[in-house]
Simulated scan of single mutants.
Amino acid sequence: MKMGTTRITTIQMVALLSSALIAVGIFTLPRDLAMKVGTPDLWICVILGGICGYLSSLIIVSLSLRFERLTFFEFNKLIIGKWLGTILSICFIGYALLIGAFEIRSMGELTQFYLLEETPISVILITMYWVAIYLLIGGINPIARLIELLNPICILIFILVFCLGFKVFELDNLRPLFGLGAGPILKGMTPTFLTFSGLEFLLVFIAMMQKPKDAKKVALIGLGIPVFIYLLAVVIITGGLSVERMKHQKWPTFALIQEYEYEGILFERFDSLFLVVWLIQMFTTYVVCQYVAAKGISQLTRISYKKANYVLLAAVYIICLIPQDLNQLEKMGTIIGWTSFAFSFFIPSILLIIAVIRRLKHEAEPQNGP
C-alpha cells in the first residue's frame, strides 16, 4: 500500500468530526436542557458548551501534533509508560464502544417507535450492524468519503426543517433573558457534555490527516457546524413549544416538526424526511465510534483491524441491550457525558502537561493502517 492512500483530507476530517457530533443530541438535548435549566436561557448553554468544547479541542490538537502520525493508543505509552498507557487505551476503547452502543440503541428506539412498531428492537439493531460492518471493513477512506458525501446533505435538510419551524415560532417563549440569573445556565452545562462527545476522537484521527497542521481549522469548523445546528434547534424548539411543553415531551424535536405543515409543495409534513436524514446521521456516528474502537484493538493486540470489527459486534450488541427502557438509556447518556469530559479535557490536559515537562515529541512516521 502506497504512502498517503490511507490519509484523509481536511474537508473529509471536517465532515467526519461534525458528523460524529451531530447525533442523538438533536432529540435529547432540548428536553434535557429544559429539565435542567427550566428557563428560556437554554440557548446560552449551547453557546457556552461550544466554547468549552473548542478549548478542549485546542488541547487535543496541541497534544496530537507533538506526536505526529501517532494515534492516542500509541503516544500515551510514550508519555505515561506501557502499562498505564495500555490501561488508558482500553478505557478509551470501552468509551468508544459505549458511545456507539448508545447511538445505535437510540436509533433503534426511534425507528421502532415511529416506523417499525411491531418489529423487535433486536432485529432492527442487527440489521444496522451488518450494514455498518460492510462499510467498516474497508477502513477509514470509504468511511471518510461516505461521510463527506452525506454530511452536507444532512446539514442542509436539518437547517431547512428547523427554519420551517418559524411558522409556529413565538418570540415571547424566549423571554425573559437571565430571568433567574446565571445559576440555571450553569446547571444546563452538563447536558452539553453528551451532545459534544466525540471531540476526543481527534486524538485518533489527526494522525491520519494528510495535513495535520490544519487540525485547528478542522476543530473550529467541525465543531462550529454542530454548535450552529444545535443552537438553531434549541432556539426554534423553545420558541415553538415553550420550555414547559418541552419538559413533558419525550422527543421535543419531533413534537415541533409535527406542529406545522406546508400545503402545495412536495412535502407537506417533514417528520418522515427528518427521521430518515437523522437515521443516516446516527449511522455514521456509530461507524466512527466502532472504527476508533477497532483501530485501538488492532494497535494494542495482534488482532487485525477487520477481525476486531467482527469481535466488537458482539460487544456492542450486549451493551445495547443493557438499558431496559428509555430512563436507563438516559442514565447511560449521563455516564457518557461525564466520561467524555474526562477524555476530551481532563486526560488530554494531564498528558500534554507531562509531555511538555518531559519535552516529549515524536516526528517519526509509522506505517499506515486500515
Rank of each mutant, 00 (worst) to 15 (best):
A293H: 09
G25L: 05
M282N: 14
L329C: 12
K211P: 06
E365C: 10
T6K: 15
L329F: 13
W338Q: 08
P226Q: 01
V227G: 00
F178Y: 09
E74W: 07
K361C: 06
K331V: 11
L360A: 00
I236R: 04
A15E: 07
G222P: 01
W83K: 10
K247N: 05
V123C: 11
T285Y: 12
P176L: 02
C163G: 07
N76K: 02
V288K: 05
L136R: 03
I87V: 10
S89G: 13
G240M: 04
I59V: 15
T111R: 11
L275N: 15
S304E: 03
A144D: 03
A255N: 05
I87Y: 00
S197C: 13
E200A: 08
L149I: 11
L135P: 01
I354M: 01
L266M: 14
Q112K: 15
I257R: 07
G333A: 07
I350S: 02
T5E: 14
L241S: 03
G296Q: 07
W251R: 06
N76L: 04
E244I: 09
Q258H: 14
V276A: 13
I8A: 10
I44S: 02
A15W: 05
L21K: 00
K295I: 11
M189F: 15
G240E: 01
S340W: 00
F267P: 13
E118M: 11
A215C: 09
G369P: 02
G85E: 03
Y129G: 02
L29E: 06
M107S: 14
V356A: 10
A364N: 12
A15F: 05
F346V: 15
L48I: 15
C163K: 04
A101Q: 03
C52V: 15
V292E: 07
Q112F: 01
V288R: 02
L241N: 06
L70Y: 14
T39C: 12
I347V: 15
A182L: 15
A308M: 04
L17S: 01
R359N: 14
S298I: 10
E148Y: 14
E148T: 14
L223Y: 05
V24L: 14
M35P: 05
E170M: 09
L202C: 05
F72D: 09
G333T: 08
D271T: 06
L149W: 13
G181P: 00
S304F: 06
S340H: 00
V61W: 05
M209Y: 07
A96E: 01
G38L: 03
P40A: 00
R66I: 08
